[in-house]
Amino acid sequence: MKSTTLSYRIFPLGDAAVTVDFGNIIDKSINQQVLHLFNSLQNDPLPGMKEVVPAYSSLAVYYNAIDVRKKHNGSMTAFDSMSAQIKERLDQSLTDIETVSKLVSIPVCYEKELAPDIEYLANAKSISVDELIRMHTSKEYRVYMLGFLPGFSYMGEVDEKIAIARKPQPITVASGSVGIAGRQTGIYPMTCPGGWQIIGRTPVQLFDPGKDEPTLLKAGDRVQFISISKDEFENY
């Protein structure tokens, strides 16, 4: 990993968390910086840290303000203390951590009855359904972050030719539904209201509370969708 000068801003997220912001854009290399800091803090937590939460281009460090203040006998705010320690971490170690990213193949059935919005999307973008499926399965996607629901992964970026706005109102979406919103694609790990345009469904379980690692995907993973038939879906 080459050494680069990082550009970032640190600001409070209330009085119990700090945000580190690497730039308000969706970008692979910026997300990589977020995950480097995330991994560094997961492996070697700062004193008083409660947890660290990565997003697209920013990350939050939650802390116990009372514990952090105690260290300084109240002479410094917990926010200032955490900010200084995070800056220090960013200065020293972010160049030598290699993130391991796994490639996960996810079978998806794009048949109409499991893909309520696939014809709408194809029509809106003036392409055939087959072409849409080909485009969605033609590349690897990066898992930028998890959020919204346990195990819900925000992946990108889909080809501009199949990018589409989300629905004006969320409607009930079945568990395993694969959707598109803008240039993002994602999978609903459970049945719930959702606004993404649904183009297929996977038989794979994205979230299992009984497992030590309850989600199939993690930020930084790569995903390849593979088209399967209705028959394969049902007998998966």
């Binding site: 912001d21 939460v53 281009s57 920013s58 990350l59």
Partner: peptide, 13 residues
């Protein structure tokens, strides 16, 4: 109306 890229939020935000 510049978009905010999804970022962490907290109790009380």
């Amino acid at each position: 109306n510049e978009e905010v890229v999804s970022s962490p939020v907290s109790f009380g935000t």
